[in-house]
Design a protein around this nucleic acid. Structure first.
Lengths: 181, 181
DNA sequence: GCAACAATATATCACTATGGCATATTGCCC
DNA sequence: GGGCAATATGCCATAGTGATATATTGTTGC
């Protein structure tokens, strides 16, 4: 068995915030945790059905205006308990699968130009990510001064430090490529 | 379809190094790229069979002494071409799934002690990782001064910078927790 | 000398997760 | 009014994980 279903807990955590549809959950997660977590519909919807079947969430069909009907899910007491148990549990290791580094590692046969281009594009991606993080930081400061805000800033800070380190690494690579020609 | 099979390329890359059995490939990858890449047997063996069926590798049964027979795989010319194409291609984004951060993000209901313990364990993990990286660095310096060595050190350096940044983050979290009591 | 255990070598299975495509409606811009 | 983004969900093929099974050899300790 593949450890445990972490999507479950991302969903329960989001619903602890407020009742939402699957689509809303995806949007909410994308806005808040996308720098260290990703979900996709293909898994999200089945997990929601499963959680409903287990009684950890309730499902309610809702019609608003003439928009397509949506299923709004709400956390139950048992769902809260389940969330609480997971929160206190030991977190699993993050997946290690960095394709860029794998290409570099086996990149002996690549010419220097291709290598440098790879690094430069990575640097651009990271700088772009930093802009996104800055925007998230602004949003948190404005909208969420509460007890959550501090924890959110902590996770944001993680992303910032990682991205800074990645840029630093790109620059070191550039200097190395410039020397070794 | 789920983007593309990256395990394929990890395997081709390893076999470009030298002919090996599935077990050997796993060992070789674990020793060299484990700080940014992981493979497991459950996927590795099926992929090897698939690569053989496609003619990108050849399979040869080998008996050595009375040890269990093993299948040694060797890269074909078409396999080399496939590897070359992938090396020059745009790398896919790394999976974003950090369970520790997800727990912190939803961790409003956790008490400070639990939070601090989580951070401390993370710090210990990172310090442990740094020790492993240092050992790998030594090994590379000793055994591989060739053209590969420089690229390997680049990927190693990435791991070092990430781990340093992670420890820095842990320390910032500690200071935050100390302030906010 | 034998039990316990690590390493060698592969395979299978259940489950988790990804990403592409399909579908249908509404709202907006040119 | 044509096209495209957003809302809302579902399905499928494929990728990837981790537990477990199996059989042999080599090593370590009692």
């Amino acid at each position: 068995m593949a450890r445990h279903n972490t999507t479950r807990f991302a969903v329960l955590g989001a619903l602890a915030w407020q009742p939402m549809s699957g689509y809303d959950i995806k949007k909410a997660l994308d806005r808040s945790v996308s720098h260290f977590w990703s979900e996709n519909f293909g898994h999200l919807y089945p997990v929601l059905r499963q959680l409903a079947a287990e009684g950890l969430v309730t499902q309610k069909r809702e019609q608003s205006g003439r928009r397509p009907a949506k299923s709004v899910y709400r956390l139950t007491d048992r769902g809260e308990d389940e969330l609480g148990r997971w929160l206190a549990s030991e977190p699993g290791a993050a997946p290690r699968r960095n394709e860029l580094l794998l290409q570099l590692f086996f990149g002996r046969r690549l010419d220097k130009t291709t290598l440098r281009d790879k690094i430069r594009r990575e640097r651009e991606r990271q700088v772009g990510a930093q802009a996104t993080l800055a925007a998230v930081r602004d949003e948190i400061k404005k909208a969420h001064a509460g007890p959550d805000g501090a924890l959110w800033l902590l996770t944001l800070r993680y992303g910032e430090l990682m991205s800074e380190a990645a840029v630093k690494w790109c620059d070191e690579c550039e200097r190395w490529a410039a020397r070794a020609r």
